[in-house]
Amino acid sequence: MKVRLKFTKIGHMKFLGHLDLQRLFQRCIRRADLPIEYSKGFNPHQHLYFALPLPLGATSEGEYLDMNLTSGVEPQEIKNSLNAFLPEGITVQDVYILSNDSLVGMAAVDAAEYRISIDKETVPSNFMDAVNNFFNQKEILAEKRGKKGIKEISIKEMIYKYTLDENDKQWMIYLVLAAGSKANLKPETVIEQLYKNNGWEYKDYRIHIHRINIFSRINNEFLPLSD
């Protein structure tokens, strides 16, 4: 039985890296005694398929993890038994049963939505104009650090949507970006380039990235992985 878990990673859990999160889930799944499928061989390990790694420091209300179970368990039971062992900040919100031919893990991912919060006092007062100008460029080039050094890439076509919102203290940029194995754009790459183009000093610890949801593209429509 293929199942998909939707979970949160909020609060102090933002300090947990992706590998640490994987280990945490492996151990909680064991404690919850779920009939998870193990790899064959002499050192069996669990097959866990995370949709998209979240960078350390970011929070999320829409993370997904797929796995195979060797026998049927009620979604509600999976949720309750895992939540009994998961730490504060990581909560399974829903469990969905997938059809056997569903894509799992990153293969199912096409886009992700983010909210990037920036304290107003850390940026100049022309922030709104600068943001609009940046996203309305005909072409947006960004520097990407790869194995072969820094190269310039065009990112405009990987930004599916942007909106800007504000409250008393913060600017909030909402982004829907290409994600997954085909094309992947990290929100920090976009924001860093925004800062660079405007000559502002970029420090990753001054912005806060929050992932809202992860999507699949089905018939040219973005649907959350939970659908």
């Binding site: 609060g11 933002k14 300090f15 947990l16 890296g17 420091g57 730490p87 504060e88 900040g89 610890y205």
Partner: peptide
């Protein structure tokens, strides 16, 4: 949630910040 002694922006500037947050399982 326990309030952390070290503020988030400082924790995000050090290696392996999870060393300092406590509240582990068990």
């Amino acid at each position: 949630m326990t309030t952390l002694r070290v503020k988030d922006d400082l924790l995000l500037q050090v290696e392996k910040p999870a060393r300092y947050i406590g509240n582990e399982v068990n």
